[in-house]
Amino acid sequence: ATNIVGKVKWYNSTKNFGFIEQDNGGKDVFVHKSAVDAAGLHSLEEGQDVIFDLEEKQGKAYAVNLRIK
């Protein structure tokens, strides 16, 4: 899925991951530091509006192509 809109539920910059809540009511999506770095960001803030693509690997969904809304 592409261009999914959501809000950062939480992001832990020490542990380098967090979760994004989808605006469409879907399951929360894992986001890793690598996606944050690829977006040219240092971190994510709770409540921040983002747009992302959804990829699945080994049955787990995660956010890629992250951008600030």
Rank of each mutant, 00 (worst) to 15 (best):
A1V: 13
A1N: 11
T2C: 04
N3M: 06
I4N: 08
I4C: 04
I4Y: 06
V5W: 04
V5C: 04
G6W: 01
G6T: 01
K7M: 06
K7H: 14
V8N: 01
K9I: 08
W10H: 05
Y11Q: 01
S13I: 13
S13A: 11
T14S: 10
T14M: 13
T14G: 11
K15Q: 09
N16M: 12
F17R: 02
F17D: 01
G18R: 00
E21F: 12
E21D: 07
E21A: 14
Q22S: 12
D23R: 15
D23V: 15
D23A: 15
D23S: 15
N24A: 12
N24L: 07
G25K: 12
G26H: 13
K27Q: 09
K27Y: 09
D28A: 06
V29A: 07
F30V: 03
V31A: 03
K33R: 10
K33I: 06
K33S: 08
K33F: 07
K33Y: 08
K33C: 04
A35Q: 09
A35E: 11
V36H: 02
V36D: 01
D37S: 14
D37E: 14
A38T: 09
A38Q: 10
G40H: 12
G40V: 04
G40C: 05
L41G: 07
H42S: 10
S43T: 14
L44V: 06
L44M: 07
E45A: 13
E46Q: 14
G47I: 03
Q48E: 13
D49K: 15
V50W: 02
I51D: 03
F52M: 04
F52Y: 08
F52L: 03
L54P: 01
E56I: 10
Q58P: 10
G59Q: 12
G59N: 13
G59R: 10
G59L: 13
K60C: 04
K60W: 09
A61T: 14
A61R: 08
Y62E: 13
Y62H: 10
A63H: 01
V64L: 07
N65L: 06
N65E: 06
R67H: 12
R67A: 07
I68Q: 13
K69H: 09
